[in-house]
């Protein structure tokens, strides 16, 4: 974790302009679930080192957006490129791409039959053909970093939700991804465990990880995000830096949404 003594990486955004080159680019992306038009002409560019928070009402397509980026969902039209390359179709090529994009799920989805350590070594050994001893060393370093190294030999079911989610983050980080996707990573957690996960995520953001985070945690957005993307009914309605978005949203739909979540 980057502590206060670490050297800050170069600023990601200067004068409201991202300094990194585009890493994730969605261009005119459309997707349907049957008759439901879940993504409607979505355009989104995430630059290297940028942290983008996606926010919006339930059913607006946030999860779907996230899942199309590593092709857990296919799209009907448009293109998605990662680091300049279009997403490959099914096969080995796609598997390699997925290793480059870490994904953290709301429900953790740790491999239930494997220990914490094995959860973090599996991808390295199988997908990257790293030697098991080397994979273990890497895994322990990352588990240390997210603060669960002392749980390495336990099964996921023996851990608290917050610990499980931190292991899930470690599992994704072990693949040395270029970007990380988080789909409501704290929504399934008891309130007292939310911060331990958010702290890990803020640390990642400070270290310069490119992140797309679906979350309603405004604290996180304010602390770590460079940009907030507001979605409603399958459309990207508004994009702004967090301060602007939360204090002076432009669109009526965003104002309406914020008034609802702020009164709760």
């Amino acid at each position: 974790m980057a502590d206060s003594t670490a050297v800050d990486p170069a600023p990601v955004v200067v004068d409201g302009r991202p300094t990194g080159e585009p890493l994730i680019v969605l261009d005119h992306v459309d997707k349907h679930f049957g008759a439901l038009h879940v993504l409607q002409d979505v355009n989104l560019t995430v630059h290297r080192g940028e942290v983008v928070v996606v926010i919006g009402p339930s059913g607006s397509g946030k999860s779907t957006l996230c899942r199309t980026i590593n092709r857990l969902e296919t799209i009907d039209s448009g293109t998605i490129t990662l680091d300049g390359k279009p997403l490959p179709a099914e096969g080995r090529e796609l598997a390699r791409l997925r290793a480059d994009v870490g994904m953290v799920f709301q429900s953790f989805n740790l491999f239930a039959h494997k220990t914490v350590l094995e959860n973090v070594t599996l991808g390295q050994i199988k997908a990257k053909r790293v030697k098991p001893s080397e994979a273990r060393t890497t895994a322990m370093e990352i588990l240390e970093r997210v603060g669960v190294a002392n749980q390495a030999d336990k099964l996921p079911a023996q851990l608290s939700g917050g610990q499980q989610q931190r292991v899930a983050i470690a599992r994704a980080l072990a693949m040395r991804p270029k970007a990380m996707l988080f789909d409501e990573p704290t929504s399934a957690l008891d309130p007292e465990m939310i911060n331990e996960v958010l702290d890990v995520m803020v640390g990642l953001a400070r270290d310069g990880m490119t992140m797309v985070v679906v979350t309603h945690e405004m604290g996180f957005a304010r602390r770590a995000a460079h940009r907030v993307v507001f979605m409603d009914a399958g459309q990207v309605v508004e994009e702004a830096d967090p301060e602007t978005f939360f204090t002076a949203p432009r669109s009526e739909r965003a104002q309406d949404f914020l008034s609802k979540i702020l009164t709760h």
Binding site: R96, L110, F111, A112, L122, G123
Partner: peptide, 16 residues
């Protein structure tokens, strides 16, 4: 389905 998605998400092939 979550287990399969997590496996695919870390880059395992279908067979793996």
């Amino acid at each position: 389905i979550g287990q399969a998605e997590a496996a695919r998400a870390i880059g395992l092939t279908f067979g793996q």
